[in-house]
Structure formats: structure tokens, C-alpha cells
Amino acid sequence: MKRKSRLKIQKDVIALNIIAYTFTALIAILCLLPFIMVISGSFSSERAVAANGFSLIPQDFSLEAYKTVFKTPSVVIRAYATTTVLTVTGTALGLLLQTMTAFVLARKDFPWRNGFSFFFYFTTLFSGGLVPTYVLYTRTLGLANNYLALLFPLLFSVFNLLIMKSYIMGVPDTLFEAAKIDGAGDFRILFQITLPLIKPALATVGLFIALAYWNDWYNAMLYIREEKMFPLQYFLYKQVNSIEAYKKMIANNQVSGDVISTLSLPTQTLKMALTVVVTGPIILAFPFVQKYFVQGVTIGAVKG
């Protein structure tokens, strides 16, 4: 009897695995190929790319894009450092803030949880636009050219908050109640009981916050003027976009003369190189976070 059922389970496990492997592999390859194209593009010459488009193997191998990026290595290294420090600080603070808030909103015994959820969610629907935010940061708070202007905007995201809330709601209420009866305070329930149970959630939301900081160029564009303070993404964004925008200006006959040096700079391959430069460190760091949410759950089932 038992043997038979095991066999049956095995069969459908095999069926599922065939589907799962095929589907996952297909999507993974679809995701990988373009990235290979990006890497090979970054090592191609601008001219070859203009003539033949991008391909999976570098054409007319060239380092001109990387030479443009690393024209002044010290600036790039400083930008990397700025971004790293900002990402680490922001992720730590943001994760704390979001988990704490989500914990309250997920508590079924908190009487105003729906109200506060609405209070937070409402801000994702309506926005006053750029001007009032700019005035707030630069004039009211006086944060122009201040790292805080890069830290604050991404510290708290309602999207992450509500995701986190949904994860914490998966923790059985009975745990909270039992802890309460034992006389545990809310902070203890959060830090000693809830957090260890939601490690995958912490890893996920932490990853999202970290990525947001890592990829942010927009706030630097608005609030940071000192080249020394540029985070990596803005430094790179500025490099490629200023060349492009300038070329466009010339194309529209709006400016002329003194253009030779800009016109010969790469743009398409430069964009590819920038992607590689930005993504590299994340790919190296990714496995450390990944282990928290990429685990199998089949172990239990097979045992049965």
C-alpha cells in the first residue's frame, strides 16, 4: 500500500519536474541571452554596432566604451563607494522601518490597522509632482547637496510595506497571543518571535530596498550638484545622457561649432558598458541573499 502510493507520488513528481525544468530553463535562457548581448555589445566598437546591430559575440573587439567609463578611475571608485555606503545604510534603516510598521499593520488586534493601511496606501495614488517635492528637499529641509536627500526618498516604500505586511500575516496569530500571555512586550514579539520566522521576507524586502538604492540616479539628478558626491548610477547616467542629448542638439541644428570631441564618443556601446559596470557587483552579492528565498520545499513531501 505504502509502496504503491510512493510510486504514484514519484511519477507525478517526475512529470512536474519535467514541466518545471523546461519552463524555468526556457525563461532563464530568454533572460540570459539579452544580457550576453549587452556584454558583447559593451566590448564591440561603436562603428561595427552601427553597421550590423548587436550580436552575441563581440564584433570588432574594442574597449573604447570602458575607456570612456573609466576615463577618471578615481571618480568611478568614489562613486562606487558612495553608492555602497548609501545602499547598506538605506537598506538597514529602511528594512527596520518597514518591518516595524508592517508588523503593526499585520496585527489583528490593532484597531486602526485598516485606517493606517489606507493612510499609507493613499500616498501611492496621488502625488503633487516634482515641484513641491523639490521645494521640500531644497528649501524647507535644506538638503541640497546632502547625502540625506539621497537617503530619505527611498527609505520607506508603501509597496514594500504592504508586501511585508502580507508576509507577516502568514505568521499564525496564535504565536502572538501565546507570547502576549507569557508577558512579552510588542518589541519582543517583533524582534524575537516574528523576525526569525520571516527571514525569506526580510531577504526579499531587503533586496528590493537595496536594489532601489543601488539603481537610483533620479534623486541625485535633482539634489546633488557636487561631482564628488555623485552615486554610481547618476555618474554613469550623466555620462551617457549628456553625450546623447548633446548629439541630439547638434542634430537639430541648435548648436554648432566646437563639437568634434563629443561627436566621436561612443553612445550605444557605452550604454551597454554602463549596464555591465552597474550590474557586476550585484551579481556577485546576489547569492548571499538568494539562499533565503530559493529553497526547495519538496524535502518534506518526499519523506512522506
Binding site: 531644497t138 528649501r139 535633482l222 550638484r225 550623466k238 551617457v240 545622457n241 542638439m249
Partner: peptide, 21 residues
């Protein structure tokens, strides 16, 4: 002299005025 980069002058030029810089 400060520079409004080609990359983002479209956004930042009006902001200088509306932000009261």
C-alpha cells in the same frame, strides 16, 4: 559657474526657478 548637464537640463532648468534657487 554651475552646470546644468545636457543629461537632465530639461528637468532641472525649470526647477531652478520654481524651487527658488
Amino acid at each position: 559657474v554651475d552646470w546644468l548637464s545636457w543629461a537632465d537640463e530639461g528637468t532641472n532648468y525649470p526647477l531652478l526657478f520654481s524651487g527658488g534657487d
